[in-house]
Design a protein around this nucleic acid. Structure first.
Lengths: 267, 267
DNA sequence: CTGGATTGTCTCTTACAAAAGACACATGTA
DNA sequence: TACATGTGTCTTTTGTAAGAGACAATCCAG
């Protein structure tokens, strides 16, 4: 299971991940862990493995899974004893999209952007204190820089992260960013103070560019989408090769900012 | 939890079942009800109303909602004391789509179909014993025949329902279809035996057409999508004006069947 | 074949979550 | 002014759901 491959996904889940599996957990929390675990693994899981994965008694997971399957939140996967997300979750997810203008329009705009520029484009948001790629559109390059929807990456690794945190108190930021988050995939270590300074700069500039942070070959351009004056609700970003010319980069940033502004709610 | 969810199309019709809800319900069940309730109402709901809506103590709902909001399954809606679905549910929903070839390709095919024909097209599936519109694409008619994704309609009202039940035992069908389901929106009443006969006919024919069932102005054409030989996993359907000519209807059915077959897994 | 590992279903106990209800503070309206 | 209605946070009580464990049934490697 645990596929040592370090890049990106962090397995440990949730709101307040508790220390040594507090003996008796609330059923609802078990369920939340199950969902997180499935999301992290992106494939159907056997019930036994699921119990191991969320570190819970087998008997408990059996009963919970049965409830969830009956309710349609989970489905038994083809071969018989594995479970994965169910139709109900898809339906609820579509309800969310329908009720959320920003997401609906944002998805559309991101698709446009990647079609027009040929580059990978993404819509990003804070999701309970974590950076999340809410929608992404692949771009047309032969060497595709892909990152799946729903991927969660440490905030300091990204340009969008710097924009999303603009306007937060220092204490809040410290709270959201763990020590591990400051260590880049290649082992380099960011200083918290530098990161916080970056945030201020990005907020003031109204865009942010990072080079070679998550990997050595790409540059990330991001622009903020506001839900109210000063409040960054999301970001739109482009992932381009690191050797993209100054001029082209400048043009892309301008385009990105225009589109992001179009999505913003101007109070 | 036999009764599953009692909320179908009926807005709130009030006092149906909810048998002497043994006052002390499992938290998870409360949550499932909350989600169903939000889905049925398609808008943010105040916590007090939510408690009323799912017929649960206020204090319980407060704690559950807090958990769910912390987990990101729900979000507080703009004005402050209302909740609706959250980003997490959207992400899980996208995971479901990604893990489900049929749904992914089916959505695409439905979009194509409605663009090519100009008619409203839908992808439908059984969802824990209920007919569900999983994806729909509006069509280009001025008088739009729209039906929202996720809508659940009694099986006997639809052409797709007749196909989806093909191959089930009579007893199972009787179990899925309540007395109320047999009453059409205009008050007419279907006979269970007729309905079951329809199912057999539709299954044998490989398509189904119903006229003026859910409303007086439309005709519904449906074709089955198989996940294995004989097993109907979903249907694709077109909603057209009831006065569509025989010839055009025939052409559309042929098109529909071809596209549905393309989506089927031929064992 | 044998022994270990996994699966799905049961039963029983008690730790603890759901419920009841009281409270403080808003609103609105007669 | 009093009087109703809604909200959000407490505390206390008690019914029950989570958990431990035993079970038979598969499965698979050696």
């Amino acid at each position: 299971m645990q596929d040592g491959n370090a890049l990106a996904v962090r397995p440990d889940a949730g709101p307040d991940e508790d220390k040594i599996s507090g003996s008796r957990e609330k059923g609802l929390n078990r369920v939340l862990h199950i969902l997180e675990f499935l999301h992290a693994n992106q494939r159907a899981i056997g019930i036994g493995d699921l119990a191991k994965g969320v570190n819970a008694p087998r008997s408990t997971i059996y009963t919970l899974v049965r409830s969830l399957v009956d309710a349609g939140l989970l489905e038994m996967a083809g071969d018989g004893n594995r479970v994965y997300f169910g139709k109900k979750l898809y339906l609820y997810g579509m309800d969310y999209v329908r009720g959320n203008d920003l997401l609906r329009r944002g998805r559309h705009e991101v698709d446009n952007l990647s079609r027009e520029t040929g580059e990978t484009s993404e819509l990003c948001m804070l999701q309970s204190g974590r950076y999340t790629i809410v929608h992404s559109s692949p771009g047309t390059r032969p060497f595709r820089i892909s990152s799946a929807t729903g991927l969660q990456i440490p905030l300091p690794w990204t340009a969008s992260g710097r924009l999303l945190l603009a306007g937060f108190e220092r204490a809040v930021i410290e709270d959201m960013v763990s020590e591990d988050d400051l260590v880049l995939p290649d082992g380099r270590r960011l200083l918290l103070d530098d990161f916080i300074a970056d945030i201020a700069t990005a907020g003031a500039a109204g865009y942010c560019v990072t080079s070679g942070l998550v990997d050595a070959y790409t540059k990330c351009l991001a622009a903020p989408i506001f839900s109210a004056p000063g409040k960054v609700e999301a970001t739109m970003c482009l992932v381009v090769p690191i050797d993209t010319s100054e001029e082209k980069t400048g043009n892309l940033i301008a385009l990105l900012r225009e589109r992001a502004a179009r999505l913003s709610i101007t109070g």
